[in-house]
Design a protein around this nucleic acid. Structure first.
Lengths: 104, 104
DNA sequence: AGTTCATATTGACAAAAGTTAATCTGAAAC
DNA sequence: GTTTCAGATTAACTTTTGTCAATATGAACT
């Protein structure tokens, strides 16, 4: 799916200051939800809401380990977002569009 | 003022499907508002609202020519957004490594 | 001066996104 | 089995964002 709406979802995930702060924390490495709740000083459902949006955008990946959920920045998801941004801001004459599809 | 909030504003500009569609039209080259109104099939105040958000993000530049306003994708604004996205999705250890080992 | 034309702004409303207490789920341990 | 704990989901609410008719602005004419 390559509609403008689906592309917008990727940037919508990055359009909130608190989610960018979460990403900043994840730049230090994989972290579990309980750590992020403490570091963000945020109620548990609020963090869960933001993590869902980040994960659905593909930029963050989650890993289940027993009761704990670990989050980390997805290399492939980030690369996809970067490529997407590059394409949508490049005049058409300058480059031929290549098909964008990302998998994990 | 939170720095994450100001970063978020750049991506907020890209978080709407209609604004991405406008960008897509601007990839063809500079266009004036009256053309975009027709191509977007959008009331004039609605386009004006979206153009303001795109311009304030730095991704689009406007140029006044008499009564007409011409819009185009800003190369520097786009480059800034791209660099921003690259930084916020790159693990910190990787960035440090790059600074430590410079290539000729 | 006044008129016209292109666009920006205002204001009132509708739609979408964010917050959080309460509740549910599912995994590990007893 | 039951209890506990981590996290997801729900539901009701607040805030923010998007829409568009009406109006204002400002430039280029007469």
């Amino acid at each position: 799916m390559n509609t403008c709406e689906s592309k917008a979802a990727v940037f919508k995930a990055l359009s909130d200051g608190k989610r960018l702060r979460i990403l900043e924390l994840l730049r230090e490495g994989e972290k579990c939800a309980c750590i992020l709740i403490k570091q963000m000083n945020m109620p548990q459902p609020t963090l869960s809401y933001h993590m869902k949006i980040l994960c659905e955008s593909g930029i963050v990946k989650s890993r289940q380990q027993g009761k704990w959920t670990h989050y980390r920045i997805s290399e492939s998801g980030s690369a996809y977002a970067l490529e997407l941004l590059k394409i949508i801001t490049t005049p058409i004459s300058h480059t031929k569009d290549k098909k964008l599809c990302y998998k994990d």
